[in-house]
Design a binder for these strands. Structure first.
Length: 273
DNA sequence: CGCCAGGACGCCC
DNA sequence: GGGCGTCATGGC
């Protein structure tokens, strides 16, 4: 990853990065694609840090109105720029299906998101579709001046007071998660450091957090790349391409492989409709 | 109208 | 420990 400063913007050159694939692939829900003079532009927040980022025709990225220190201290980490995805994909290409998935959507990166935001977001995601997940999270943040509410703030809500979210049966789960996190009964920072099976057990003590949501929180909110969320799409991938199990060589970065496979199978299915 | 969505819970056996 | 109905809501 190379970068340069141009006025108030940071210009970034990074080949293994595509904004659509990374910000609109179902790992994060608060990025909005907006029309602009650039090829692709997204606006969004990482918790409460604003960013407008564009991808131009020549493949470069523009981090708009971003200081060098914010870029280095926040966004380099968030977009995982210190990880070499070329090497990862090279290793993945040993496997035929994974190789296809990487060449199909090789610009996906695993975002290093906030664990609290991920916990609430993926509780909302259960038995739900991406447009509606985004809508619920939008309504939630709109209620807090466009910021993602802190555990302390959300813990004061009840399923009734959250009815404006129209999140259905998930509201009571949001409340339980908020109360456990704000009281310290659930310590997300500690869970992030635990052996993965212990971390899973700890997360699943929250009502509405089962195997899939726990795995998503570990992968997307705690950068546990060995976490492997299995949803309806990945079930199809496993049944169709890996009847004898997922290849061992990729297990340490199975979660990142999962991202390529998820994007691949969803778009293959879509094009067959 | 019915079906499905990046599932989990409660109850059954 | 596995199987199954149920849970809100909205897009299609």
């Amino acid at each position: 990853m190379d970068y340069s400063i141009k006025g108030n913007d940071i210009i970034v050159s990074e080949p293994d990065f595509d904004l659509d694939e990374t910000l609109d692939c179902g790992q994060a829900f608060r990025w909005k694609k907006i029309d602009s003079d650039y090829k692709i532009t997204y606006q969004g927040r990482f918790l409460n840090d604003d960013l407008t980022v564009s991808q131009t025709d020549n493949g470069n990225f523009i981090f708009h109105n971003t200081s060098e220190s914010d870029f280095l201290n926040k966004w380099v980490d968030y977009f995982d720029f210190n990880t070499n995805y070329s090497e990862l994909k090279k290793a993945f290409s040993e496997d035929e299906t994974l190789s296809k998935a990487c060449s199909f959507a090789g610009g996906i990166r695993l975002l290093r998101q906030n664990s609290w935001e991920c916990l609430i977001s993926f509780i909302i995601s259960q038995n739900n579709n991406i447009p509606r997940i985004k809508g619920i999270i939008d309504r939630l943040c709109d209620n807090y001046n466009s910021l993602f509410p802190e555990p302390q703030q959300l813990s004061q809500e009840t399923p009734d007071s959250l009815s404006y979210l129209r999140s259905g049966f998930r509201a009571k789960y949001i409340c339980d998660a908020s109360q456990k996190v704000s009281s310290g009964e659930t310590d997300l920072a500690a869970i992030a450091e635990m052996p993965i099976d212990q971390a899973r057990t700890e997360l699943k003590k929250i009502k509405g957090v089962g195997p899939k949501v726990a795995e998503c929180v570990l992968l997307f909110g705690m950068y546990r790349t060995d976490a492997f969320p299995i949803d309806v799409w990945i079930k199809r991938v496993l049944a169709e391409y890996y009847p004898n199990g997922f290849p061992d060589f990729a297990s340490q970065y199975a979660g990142i492989a999962q991202q390529y496979l998820f994007h691949y199978i969803r778009n293959i299915s879509r094009s067959c409709e």
